[in-house]
Design a protein around this nucleic acid. Structure first.
Lengths: 363, 363
DNA sequence: CTGAAAGCGCTTACAG
DNA sequence: CTGAAAGCGCTTACAG
């Protein structure tokens, strides 16, 4: 999955040709009903053109995908090799950590499509230092660094200090030194909680764990929803699991049930990860409680197993396939303009609710 | 400043020529010491090239700015006309609201440079509706909408529903429906507060107002810093002004001084806007208190007047000149790929501390 | 402001 | 994997 090879260019050109259908400026001119030179003038701003003609040309160019093709062509070759640093726990437990797995698959697929070579760097057990990472990047002649799911500020500022363009995926750099891409955790958690409230739930338990800051954002959003709906924060309860694995979620819910001799008035549980929701389902079933009959469950991540649970999980779908490509785009922009004064970009991608069967109206 | 005209193309080509120095593929080939065709193969991935040669070519292309030029050329013409919607209060009080003024100047400058026509829409007194805005965009054949400093969710979802590509500048869409660009308010406020704490301040007053959500993020960051430094939140005090103008800040600090019979133990004031800091300085001077002798002042915005105050204001510099161009880039990407499934992008730009004289070590 | 025509830059078979 | 040469796509004076 993360082999350090460039795809045979044959495959690439076939794929590209299929996607691009060889549209040229003359196709655009025909479609717009003007001369070839007119199209050129419009596209380059080299002559004053009437708004009417200009509009027709741009419309045609957009419709035929010519603009998109030109743009795509222009960024070929900007990125050659990236160093991809992945913390050990996201790799080892791939069966369980579907979040990272899905994200990495989409990232490597995009690299293959674009002929970008990946130098993988995984820390076995212990975590890597900035010096190690920068050294590896230099050795491998990588012109960009992609780091997954990290927060350590010494690491991030070490990378920033090297001057090598870098992006952090699924992590935050509160020092605002390097670019990053994350899910829109806070707003998405608010959206999920809003939905539960809209279904009539008033006392909701948030099942989470002491994770990295991206996980804390989900808690922020959970509380935001209560404030925005004018509900008392006493009704927004929080239960911590020991970690993010299903068994942790199961244990945490079992504990809650025991301590409260039942659900304790809670009619919905909003889990900070689908994994935890899986565990919660198990614990609730064991206790003879039905979902969503006795209690509703909302997940977070939108990872595939959510469709297969019983009942299918209502969850927040994170655009996992878009995080990697967005990170590459940021990297590219930075590499293309090395001289430019460019503030660190922190990008959050919007998430959507996947409404399935684990949430019902509150009675 | 916001005239709806395209700049004479003569000006543009002169400027561009100066910036681009007419680098071509043959300059790259000379610089890299290879044949022209080899450069082409590298840039298009049309032949397998040795890593060594590939590296030399890409290096040369990057160094000469060829890649950047190619990229810039590829996005010319993608954007023709944008509708720019500006709430009335940001325009009317331009002398005071330097934040919006600086931001808008940079945005319009970038549009002129790139030959993008702006259709300005300002609400005189009352605010505009989504229907109005979309109607104006359609009438004016704008292919993108830029909205400044808005939060109203009916407005934002109305715009999203229209299907016209749109970006919000200096505002948040918690519905995650349209793209947005804001300063990294939360992290920047944390950075500023961290700095005050590092100077030995332990009891800090945050002077803010009941503004939009972007302003609340600054409060979040202020509190984050106390938590991250293990300081009790009782030491993080908050005082609300009636608005964001200097006179509001002055009144709020005067009130604080009166209620506490002095500074009330506070050794530093972190203002949520430079405007408020200006007012705070006035109030403190009136009360015979010296800055930074008796109390330190930190601003937020990095607007020009901060350099001219007495003492010059230590503040958070927001990359106001980059917000507009970043918004145009997001708009462009969305217009170029209209078919693509693309999550809403929420972009935060990193801010930096401008250390001047209004903050001193705590005694 | 538009379009026919010359010309330039980049791409692409092809030989080595 | 490289480079000389033919060819194509886009750009650019220029006439109307």
């Amino acid at each position: 999955m993360m082999a350090s090879r460039r795809f045979p260019f044959g495959k690439r050109s076939v794929a590209d040709a299929a996607r691009e259908r060889k549209v040229g400026i003359k196709d655009v001119s025909r479609e717009a009903g003007v001369a070839i030179s007119t199209v050129s003038h419009v596209l380059n701003g080299t002559a004053p053109i009437s708004p009417d003609v200009r509009g027709r040309v741009l419309d045609a160019a957009r419709r035929l995908g010519y603009l998109a093709k030109r743009q795509a062509k222009a960024s070929i070759g900007a990125l050659d090799t990236i160093l991809l640093a992945v913390p050990s726990d996201t790799v080892i437990e791939t069966q369980v950590n579907l979040f990272s797995f899905t994200l990495l698959s989409a990232l490597t697929r995009e690299c293959e499509r674009r002929g970008i070579r990946i130098l993988p760097l995984t820390a076995d057990g212990k975590s890597f230092s900035a010096a190690q990472l920068v050294q590896e990047a230099r050795n491998g002649q990588a012109e960009g660094i992609v780091v997954l799911s990290e927060d350590r500020s010494e690491l991030l500022s070490g990378i920033a200090a090297s001057g090598i363009p870098a992006v952090l995926i699924n992590g935050e750099d509160h020092g605002m030194q390097i670019d990053s891409v994350t899910p829109g955790n806070r707003f998405a958690a608010r959206l999920a909680t809003d939905w539960l409230i809209k279904q009539g739930h008033r006392s909701i338990l948030h099942l989470t764990w002491e994770g990295r800051s991206t996980i804390r954002r989900r808690r922020d959003g959970f509380l935001d929803a209560f404030a925005a709906n004018g509900l008392p924060t006493e009704n927004a309860q929080i239960q911590f699991a020991e970690g993010y694995l299903p068994q942790h979620g199961e244990a945490a819910i079992a504990r809650w049930l025991k301590e409260h001799g039942g659900l304790g008035g809670v009619t919905a549980i909003f889990c900070a990860a689908d994994n935890l929701a899986l565990g919660a389902l198990t614990a609730l079933h064991s206790a003879g409680l039905s979902v969503p009959g006795d209690v509703s469950i909302m997940g977070f991540d939108g990872v595939t197993i959510g469709e297969l649970t019983d009942p299918p999980l209502t969850t927040v779908s994170v655009p996992l396939d878009q995080l990697g490509p967005a990170a590459l785009h940021l990297l590219e922009q930075r590499i293309l303009n090395p001289h430019l004064e460019r503030a660190a970009h922190r990008l959050e991608l919007g998430c959507r609710l996947s409404i399935r069967d684990s949430v019902a109206q509150a009675r």
